[in-house]
Amino acid sequence: MARRPPSAVVRSRVTPYLFVLPAFLVFAAFSLYPLARAAQFSLYEWPGFGPSTFVGLRNYAELAGDPAFRSAIGNALALIVFYALLPLVIGLVLAAILRRGQVRGMGFFRTVIFLPQVVALVVVAVAWRQIYSPDGSLNRALRAVGLDSLARGWLGDPGAALPAVGLIGTWLETGLVMLLLLAGMSRIPQELYEAARLDGAGPLREFRAITLPAVRGEIVVALVLTIIAALKTFDLVYMTTSGGPGHATTVPSFEVYHRAFELREVGSASAVAIVLTALVFAINLLVTRIGERGTEGGGDA
């Protein structure tokens, strides 16, 4: 068998990279370069204009002892429950019911369910702020059924503000998660369900044995997207509570804005942004790895 000339071997190895290169350059220009600049700014003390002072890792060291920053990280992790875990549970249940029931007019339901994703978050925030206001529809409904003791200014209560904002995230993300899961369930052959029913399997057993393993990939994608949304949320917090009361709803993205544009501490704000980026990457890498191991385990079984 004739050996290929070295030049042909080199071309065969280089050609795939040439196709990817334009996309990589665009990605580098709009994502990697700003991230590198933020990392550079985080090493300086700079008010956003004029001269800057190199301080090394001091901004990061100060973040470690900053209670406001720790509170922001804790709030962001708490929002994962509302943005990711609750929508996943609700989305799984609703998708399984719709898949099993074969509801007519599925296209209409999908459009309505996905509607929160296409509405501007500013509009969503203003609408929910009215719902949560002391004389809003939520408190009126509670008073109408005799639960006056539960009525309150939801966004002004330190104990209720974060869950109130989180439930908006649940409302926003449930439709997206459900559509992803419905798309995965639509690829499951109907014969598998028919065979399970012949074996005497009920709805719960069908869900555990057939549906859940088949949509594991969609579950990982849904978790990645919703966790990113939870950790980087800004406009919803800014428009509803502005991080208050106190630091009850402060999140890292809002801390970046607060430090950069209100306190004029661009270096510290950049350090928060870099830490947030690392946190998003680490959590989603963990979710992806767990999902891959589960898929391999299911495939081996």
Score class of each variant (00 low, 15 high):
Ser71Gln: 15
Val9Met: 14
Val26Arg: 04
Ala68Asn: 13
Tyr44Arg: 06
Ala64Arg: 04
Pro5Ala: 14
Ala23Asn: 04
Pro5Lys: 00
Thr15Trp: 12
Ser52Asn: 03
Ala38Val: 15
Ala36Lys: 09
Asp66Gln: 00
Asn75Arg: 03
Pro6Leu: 15
Gln40Asn: 14
Val14Ile: 12
Leu43Tyr: 03
Ser52Ile: 07
Phe19Gln: 04
Ala61Val: 11
Tyr17Pro: 06
Leu35Phe: 03
Arg11Gln: 10
Ala76Ile: 07
Arg4Leu: 15
Gln40Tyr: 11
Pro67Trp: 02
Leu79Val: 02
Glu62Thr: 12
Ala76His: 08
Ala76Ser: 15
Val55Gln: 05
Ala61His: 10
Tyr17Gln: 09
Phe30Met: 10
Gly74Arg: 07
Ile73Ser: 08
Ala78Arg: 14
Ala61Met: 12
Val20Lys: 05
Ala38Pro: 03
Leu18Asn: 02
Leu21Trp: 04
Tyr33Met: 08
Arg3Gly: 15
Gly74Ile: 08
Phe24Cys: 10
Ala76Arg: 05
Phe30Val: 11
Val26Ser: 03
Ser7Asp: 11
Thr53Gln: 12
Arg37Ala: 10
Ile80Gly: 05
Ala61Cys: 07
Leu77Asp: 07
Phe19Asp: 00
Gly65Met: 01
Glu45Cys: 04
Leu43Gly: 01
Leu77Phe: 10
Ala64Tyr: 05
Thr15Ala: 13
Val9Gly: 09
Trp46Asn: 05
Arg3Gln: 14
Leu63Thr: 02
Ala78Gly: 10
Pro16Arg: 02
Leu32Asn: 01
Thr53Lys: 12
Leu57Phe: 11
Pro67Val: 00
Ala68Phe: 08
Ala61Gln: 12
Gln40Gly: 08
Ala39Tyr: 00
Pro5Phe: 01
Ala72Cys: 10
Arg11Lys: 13
Pro67Ala: 02
Pro16His: 06
Val20Ser: 09
Phe24Ile: 10
Ala64Phe: 07
Asp66Ser: 04
Ala76Gly: 13
Ser31His: 11
Ser71Gly: 15
Arg70Lys: 07
Thr15Cys: 06
Tyr60Thr: 08
Leu21Thr: 04
Gly48Met: 10
Leu32Ser: 02
Gly65His: 00
Phe27Trp: 11
Asn59His: 11
Leu21His: 05
Ala39Phe: 00
Phe30His: 02
Ile80Ala: 11
Val14Ser: 06
Phe19Thr: 06
Val55His: 01
Gly65Tyr: 00
Thr15Glu: 14
Ser31Cys: 11
Gly74Phe: 12
Arg70Pro: 01
Phe49Thr: 15
Ala36Tyr: 03
Tyr60Pro: 08
Ala23His: 08
Pro16Ser: 05
Asn59Ile: 09
Leu63Arg: 00
Val26Gly: 04
Ala72Pro: 02
Leu77Ala: 10
Ala68Met: 14
Gly65Thr: 03
Ala78His: 09
Arg13Glu: 15
Arg58Lys: 08
Phe27Tyr: 13
Pro47Glu: 03
Ser52Lys: 11
Leu79Glu: 04
Arg70Thr: 12
Pro47Tyr: 07
Phe54Cys: 06
Pro5Thr: 03
Ser42Phe: 01
Phe54Tyr: 13
Ser42Asn: 01
Arg58Gly: 05
Ala23Lys: 06
